[in-house]
Design a protein around this nucleic acid. Sequence first.
RNA 1: GCGCGGUUAGCUCAGCGGUAGAGCGCCUCUCUUACACAGAGGAUGCCACAGGUUCAAAUCCUGUACCGCGCACCA
Length: 876
Amino acid sequence: MENDTPLKNPAERTAFPAAYLPAAVEPAWCEKWEQEKLYYYDPARPRKETFVVDTPPPTVSGELHVGHVFSYVQTDIMVRFQRMLGKNVFYPMGWDDNGLPTERRVQNLFGVRCDPALPYTPDYKPTGPKKDLKDYEHISRRNFLELCELQTAVDEKKYEALWRRFGLSVDWRQTYSTVGELCRKTSQLSFLDLFSKGHVYSAETPTLWDTTFKTAVAQAECEDREVSGFFHDIKFAVEGGGEFTIATTRPELLAACIAVVAHPDDERYKPLFGKTALTPLFKVRVPIMPSYHADPEKGTGIMMICTFGDIADVEFWRKEKLPMRQIIGNDGRLHTVEHVSKFLDSADREAALNAYGAIAGLYAKQARTKTVEMLKAAGILVGDPRTTKQAVKYYEKGDQPLEFVPARQWYIRILNSKLQLLEQGRKVAWHPDYMFKRYEQWVEGLNQDWCISRQRYFGVPFPVWFPVDAAGKIDYSKPILAAPERLPLDPATDCPPGYTEDQRNKPNGFAGEPDVMDTWATSSLTPMISSRWADDKARHANLFPADMRPQAHEIIRTWAFYTITKAWMHENSVPWYNAAISGWVVSPDKGKMSKSKGKTITPDDLLKTYSADSLRYWAGKAKLGQDTMYDESVFKVGMRLATKLFNASKFTMMQLQSPAAAGTKLCAADITEPLDKAWVESIKGLAEASRVDFAAYEYAAMLLYTETAFWDFCDNYLELVKNRAYSGKPEAARSACAALEWTLSVFLRLFAPFLPFITEEVWGWSYAESLKLPSVHKAPWPTAAEMPSAAGAPLVLAVTRKVLEAVRTKKAAEKRSVKWPVSKLAVECGPKQAAALKLALDDLLLAGCVAPAGLIIAETGSDEKDPSVTVELAVV
RNA sequence: GCGCGGUUAGCUCAGCGGUAGAGCGCCUCUCUUACACAGAGGAUGCCACAGGUUCAAAUCCUGUACCGCGCACCA
């Protein structure tokens, strides 16, 4: 390795290094690309020449892991292809620094707590982490946000450095942060726009509620978990005589019972419809009604409706206009006796309040146990509880079941637009196409409007205030909206028009909306954030809709769906024309690789052991939508491919510096040898196929066959041709040089999206100068038309390769070196094959070390079959 | 329950009507004026199962089983 110093500066390189050292080469190119502004978007070029990417903003509060590298590299591969098609690429990067993870990090790091009620403190300096919870400093929301921005900026620098190191061809001037001013402004403007268009409403209504985080959550953030529970059979009395037994898994909701229902056709219960039941323990009168929701096969066929056990209860309650008897509070505990006594309309009020007193204040689960005890004691429980598997809704990040709790929330109307949203989704080209099914299923299964308000501190505030009446009561029915030009603002510290700050929370004054928006309300706007919909209409027109949205499949229901929704509501458009859905990286035990999974191999570690190109190779081997095994042996294959490219290029460059290649520039007319023509013809086909497949998002298939062709190039064509190149016959050697020069330029370009470092490195040795194209990444994607007159019969190549293989097999069987001389080579083949073989005879004899005198070609065989070859090795 | 993927060599996967493929791993061998960070050669398969369509099925159809995922069910 005597010659490794020139590696350090690609621009000043003169000799070909002995070996490829990616660790030295790759970082140098990262810097060079930035200096050259290679990936900058040019706003002056028209939309139709532009390729716009709606990059997923990674969450900034952790470490990047191999899963990130995998999917972001896949995106970069597709982007690089588009750039080589001549597109003006708009490839931004966003940082998702909004939400709970950042909130927690900043609290701990700076020892602060957010209190939205506090006023803003200019020039606030945090004092650092605190040991004790009580020492935490309480600061205003705006101060808190500033700290969040400060901290995330540090993390973002780290992320950016790593992304650059992996060769992402992002225009780093085009970044945004979801907590930043632009995003808050866009998000708030979106709210105002949707409000004015009637897509937004606020309502006090039962909402999916997480009792741990004490916030509303949207349907999209729920997941079903199978848990084992118990069916309890409970006797209800019928007013005027009789009884029946219902089955329930949530006996603690008895006090919240508002009706009893059975299937309309259920003969067992038909006579009861219209009558009134008395709930056990509480003796509350509830109607017995027919409902298609009741399944005669399930439980006892008759069931209680409560406020609220599930979404069906909510719907029934709404439809039948039944009373509200909410007993579960925001914190998951049962309300006080005082609260419940307001609606506990009992036939035996004292007994009822007594019974409720036993469970008031308990968590739902504790109340369940207690209720069962009471039912048992009262002899109302029929038999023993039976175990059952039930699916229960959880917040995806929570560990307590969700409840339906009535609360005032902001919603975006989506239920009445399912058909339109389905239609919008259909207009997007999904890659792979079956991923559309997920979108379709999700939209069809929607049963709630999109709840966008969260009872958290950290997030984009609603640009809304409410008037406070003379009695000090907030009038939620008359929201005061901010003027668009004042955005972004915070109603907790900013004042509504026509009011002064001293009227805040005072009678005849105003109150700010305390809730913040769901993070998806912001991230659903990413294509409109990077296009600057909020403040630059001309730019927006040029960048929206985007061409490609890369993302993972598990967030089709959230990110993809919400983005499609908002693009339709705001712009009556799809947000992007293509959705490229990447798979997951799975660990060898088939689980999803994630940071929580332990076994933390960081991308930094991998860069030390392998190279950016080799990891990119691994990502490029996986097609879209497909989960991929984490497999370091594939990194090694990528390493080897890069090394091979290096060596084959070095050889080619040496030929190009030989006397045969000197003088006038090599061109198609120099390619005179039939073998070279045949080879060039095959490369033309490769170039054309690659374009078609890449354009169809089939980059993995394209990589596979390009790789195969490249190894064939090295093992067969190069081996056949190199002796001729050395031979000193000027014309024949020149033909080889011309074919090699073009072939290598094609391979470098085909591999460039996958292996941007090694290809750029090699490109710089000669093509940058000779083709006046400083970077392979801006070189045009290869076409057949580049090599106009070199058509040749492919048979030459095929037959020659076959015979050479036979020679090699013989040498391997005899345990002789590849260079061992062959004394006799007898080929029996068809006449066409024979003719083809004779066209490349010199190359064949030299590559196989065959004595010309020992060659016998018999045309007695068939052109339909492979030639039959007999080889005899020389005895030395 | 409904839907979507998948099941091919020891492993990871490609092929998706015309003689079963690649890489890794394994076994032989070879210093060869690009590359030993390499090269040459070899072994390895009832293409999950059962039916059907076809001259011909890993490939198309219909079922079944198993794996992964999505949606729904939540009394």
